[in-house]
Design a protein around this nucleic acid. Structure first.
Length: 428
RNA sequence: GCGAGCGUAGCUCAAUCGGUUAGAGCGCCGGACUGUGACUCCGGAGGUUGUGGGUUCGAGACCCAUCGCUCGCCCCA
């Protein structure tokens, strides 16, 4: 009987070497695009005081109310694994008085988030997000710049079939009136609503617009739009965002029904939705303004806008369009014997000094076996070093792809392999 | 939290109505080829059929429970 194995925790996945190239591409592109827009990386803790999320995101939200990994540490303080990145970023902005350094802070982050939900396609308990936060600018141009970043990122990766949904939730002035209008619209039909939807009607009527229940969907068709209740200032802001996107040629769909699940949003909200490939979890990215949150967490009144994107969902879309290639080593160095092995290892080090990737035979074996390995690894060149080579100072350098073989001086090996790498920049 | 589907080798799958020793392809290891990969051929390892119980002369298959995975609902990225 085999010893029982311990499996990974439900909803938390290993990323194995085969998947690494794809993730490196995702993260590398994210960093590069963020830099193009002047965003700098911030790394905040994975664990925060539970109260941060309760205050920042809203205790009534599903994310905080029932999906957080919460525990008491040894001192009795309630801590939680971060379910999203914005609250921690705002906390850091306030804690370090960044407004005093420069009120305009442009941050991006890349890292795991945790939510205790039933896993399904595109939804995991540990998932990676790429996100950005732009503090200190109320102007709609900031909204447009941030959305442009998101759009450029997915475009750069070659993901297609995405639609940008856009709306505005208004400000302190507009929201109460809109809320009331919604209650007026749905209340006469309360009897036909499910229990949860009736509770929503009381607590957060905005939620009803997002319902998938057919009855509610039908009712929502004729519901008043948040856009009709915007204050003049919010209206002007929203219109300017739309004009800015038009000017950049970014397509969007004004969709008053998008309601973000976190309480902190004001004014502009947006989602990037996949039209296929993600099943029920079609939202790839979400974001919006949170102009009141910095103040609510004890900082000076500071407007802000941000977004976050689920990288697993992005990976799912990218995997569908073909696997990322793993690049083999520039040189495979085979070894026959201990003494030649030491020579080969020295040569390998010199190649690596030169910036070439080298796979050296570590586990002794016959030539055929070593060549098989060279082939499987996808090496560009192979050479075997044995007593003969050591004595003569000459090696046979084989180009795996063509089978062509030529004899060169062992002393020239580094230069030949290095030059070949440089002619095509290591891209093969 | 709720609902549904699925668990057979490392992977993808097969196994007649419940029938005797659970197979194949790919992959892996070895050999043909003791100093040259791919193609080919030969051989090998690898399974408590997720787990526990039940029905039966007999269970991979049927029943119950349990665990896991997947998908959907809710919600979200």
């Amino acid at each position: 009987m085999a010893t029982p194995r311990i499996a990974a925790v439900k909803g938390m996945n290993d990323l194995l070497p085969e998947q690494a190239p794809l993730w490196q591409k995702l993260e590398g592109t994210a960093r590069r695009i963020a830099a193009l827009y002047g965003f700098e990386e911030v790394r905040t803790p994975l664990v925060e005081s539970t109260s941060l999320f309760v205050r920042g995101i809203g205790g009534e939200t599903d994310v905080v109310g029932k999906e957080m990994y919460t525990f008491d540490d040894r001192g009795g303080e309630s801590l939680s694994l971060r379910p999203e990145g914005t609250a921690g970023a705002v906390r850091a902005y306030v804690e370090h008085s960044r407004h005093a350094v420069d009120p305009i802070q442009k941050w991006f982050y890349l890292g795991p988030m945790f939510r205790h939900e039933a896993p399904q396609k595109g939804r995991y308990r540990q998932f990676f997000q790429f996100g950005a936060e732009l503090f200190g600018v109320a102007e709609p141009r900031a909204d447009v710049d941030l959305i442009a970043l998101v759009v450029r990122f997915v475009r750069e990766l070659g993901v297609s079939g995405l639609v940008l949904h856009l709306s505005s939730l208004g400000d302190e002035e507009s929201r109460p009136a809109y809320r009331e209008a919604l209650v007026r619209h749905f209340s006469p039909h309360a009897a036909r609503l499910s229990e949860t939807d009736r509770r929503r009607l009381e607590k957060n009527p905005l939620r009803l617009l997002d319902s998938k229940d057919e009855t509610v969907k039908a009712l929502a068709e004729g519901a008043p739009s948040t856009l009709d209740y915007l204050s003049p200032a919010s209206r002007a802001h929203f219109d300017e965002v739309l004009r800015g996107l038009d000017a950049l040629g970014i397509d969007y769909e004004v969709d008053p029904k998008i309601v973000r699940g976190l309480d902190y949003y004001t004014r502009t909200t947006f989602e990037l939705v996949a039209t296929s490939g993600l099943g029920a979890q079609s939202t790839l990215a979400g974001g919006g303004r949170y102009d009141r949150m910095v103040e609510e967490l004890g900082g000076p009144a500071t407007p802000a806008i941000g977004f976050s994107m689920g990288l697993e969902r992005l990976a799912l879309l990218l995997e569908a369009s073909g696997p990322a290639l793993r690049r083999g080593p520039d040189l495979f160095l085979g070894v026959l014997g201990d003494e030649p092995g030491r020579t080969a290892q020295r040569v390998a080090e010199r190649c690596r000094d030169r910036g070439c990737t080298v796979e050296l035979t570590l586990k002794s074996g016959g030539v055929a076996k070593q060549m098989k390995r060279a082939d499987r690894l996808g090496a560009r060149f192979s050479a075997i070093i044995g007593d003969g080579e050591r004595a003569s100072g000459r090696v046979k350098l084989k180009t795996l792809a063509t089978g062509e073989e030529r004899e060169i001086a062992l002393a020239d090996l580094v230069e030949v392999v290095g030059a070949a790498r440089e002619t095509d920049g290591g891209q093969r």
